[in-house]
Nucleic acid binder design. Sequence first.
DNA 1: AATATGACCATAC
DNA 2: TGTATGGCCATAT
Length: 96
Amino acid sequence: MPVTSPLPFSEAVRRAVRAIPRGEVRSYAQVALYAGKPGAARGVGRELKTLKGVPWWRVIRSDRTLAPAVAHEQARRLAAEGVQVKQQGEHFRVVP
DNA sequence: AATATGACCATAC
DNA sequence: TGTATGGCCATAT
């Protein structure tokens, strides 16, 4: 019998994302790592699409660009928290 | 049940 | 610099 039961992926992701401080960002891969599933960055994006009540806009790609599917809304929310976002055409990037 | 599809990433060429 | 490939994981078909 397993003495410990790892949190379901969705719960682990929820915790990891909620732990990101206001005004900061983390990459999908970083969240996956923190959630105990290194390499599961794709799964993180899949979960963020469903999870409610989490600051999903603080999760960006490793190259600091924003996922095209949500880029516009995400850029607005990040800017509202004081995160500097640069727009290059249809392409958004968080300024380091 | 099997395959395809993403809000992805690292590596290889 | 850009494209390909394999790994990852929950849904949708």
